[in-house]
Simulated scan of single mutants.
Amino acid sequence: MDINITPVKTSKIKDIDFSNLAFGHVFTDHMLVCNYKNGAWEAPEIMPYGPLSFEPSARVFHYGQAVFEGMKAYKDEAGDLFLFRPDESVKRLNKSSERLAIPALPEEIFHKGLAELLHLENEWIKPGKGNSLYIRPFVIATEGAIAASPAQEYKFIIICSPAQAYYAGEVRVLIAEKFSRSADGGVGYAKAAGNYAAQFYPTSLAHKEGYQQIIWTDANTHEYLEEAGTMNIFFRIGDTLITAPTNDRILDGITRKSIVQLAQDEGVNMEVRDFSVKELKEAARSGALKEIFGSGTAAVVNPIKGFKHGDEVFELPEVTDSFAARFKDKLLNIQYNIEADPYGWRVKI
């Protein structure tokens, strides 16, 4: 597979303050673009990052055929580049695409195209624990037609953004009682763009109450805890770690499944099961609730300091043997080639 590369004439990297990066606002010099036309994916191209031109009738604007992934590239102290479980990312991208009637992307285009792009953007990836290059692969429907049916033309694009260690400050959450993130038979398990847009309004209401995120509950009864904002979620009751099982409402998070594997292998009592709001509140009242934390690509692990449900507000205790800190450090050490990776998750580029 040949990839046509058009490099920038002058890099903008010299104008970037890498010590003061706002997440997702600065982008590298190049992007990868691959078109789907006449029933097939064409050869990808790498070109200077910049605006693209679309018909106002492009179906993505009208029917929301858009899916994406989130990944990171890491550089160790020797200057080698690594990805974390990239095979899982391309599989999930295609799983999301299938649900939105988007043609599957050949894995060779994903893997080879991304590797070429990362080598070209090598200087944008800074070494040091916490520094990384956030990678956003996505697919959108570009055919100019407003008939309510799947498009016949698409673009697969990869853009990259340098990132520092993600710190959201102290996070407190509101447990959803009215709004839902997803429902049975829906697209909750897919990384569909519309899933995230639908969260913005209820999350803005939570902000007005002084909460940074929402813990989503099941749409049928609002009795069972599912995800936190845009992250999977874990609860530590005593020395037992609990997370909800994946289904067609819950994203099969790559960080989530990695933490589950680490916990099981390190002898932590790991339960993947339905976990109710009632059980959570009872554990908080009794003192058995030790930790709540979210997991995802951007933050890796994000501790939650407190929550509200109904008229009740709960604060979590400070713990000295934090599972959140333990598993975050373990994952980062694997990602940055600081310690051995017995799972084969770390892939050298």
Rank of each mutant, 00 (worst) to 15 (best):
N4M: 13
N4V: 15
K14V: 07
F23Q: 04
G24E: 02
H25V: 06
D29V: 05
D29W: 00
L32M: 14
G50E: 01
S53V: 11
E55I: 03
S57C: 05
M71Y: 01
K75W: 00
E77F: 03
G79S: 11
D80W: 01
L83I: 05
L83A: 04
E88C: 08
L100Q: 04
P103T: 13
E108Q: 12
A115C: 10
L120E: 03
L120Q: 07
E121V: 01
N122P: 04
E123F: 09
P127E: 10
K129A: 05
S132M: 05
L133T: 03
I135W: 00
A145I: 08
A148G: 05
Q152E: 14
K155T: 06
F156E: 01
I157Q: 00
I158A: 02
C160F: 01
A163I: 01
A163S: 11
A165R: 10
Y166H: 09
V173M: 10
E177F: 02
K178N: 14
R181P: 03
S182M: 04
S182G: 12
A192D: 03
A197I: 08
A198P: 07
Y201S: 04
E209R: 11
Q213K: 06
T217S: 15
H222I: 13
H222V: 13
Y224T: 13
Y224I: 13
E227Q: 15
A228L: 14
G229D: 04
N232W: 03
I233M: 06
T240P: 01
I242D: 00
R249M: 15
I250V: 15
I250T: 04
G253Y: 01
R256N: 09
K257A: 04
K257F: 05
V260A: 08
V260D: 02
Q261E: 14
L262S: 09
M270H: 02
M270L: 12
R273V: 06
F275S: 08
K278Q: 07
L280P: 03
K281R: 09
E282L: 11
A284Y: 00
R285F: 07
S286I: 10
A288W: 03
L289M: 11
L289D: 00
K290R: 14
I292L: 06
F293I: 06
T297A: 08
A298D: 05
N302E: 11
I304R: 00
F307W: 14
G310V: 11
G310T: 12
E315P: 03
P317A: 07
T320P: 02
A324G: 10
D329E: 15
L332F: 08
L332C: 07
I334N: 02
Y343I: 07
G344H: 11
R346Q: 08
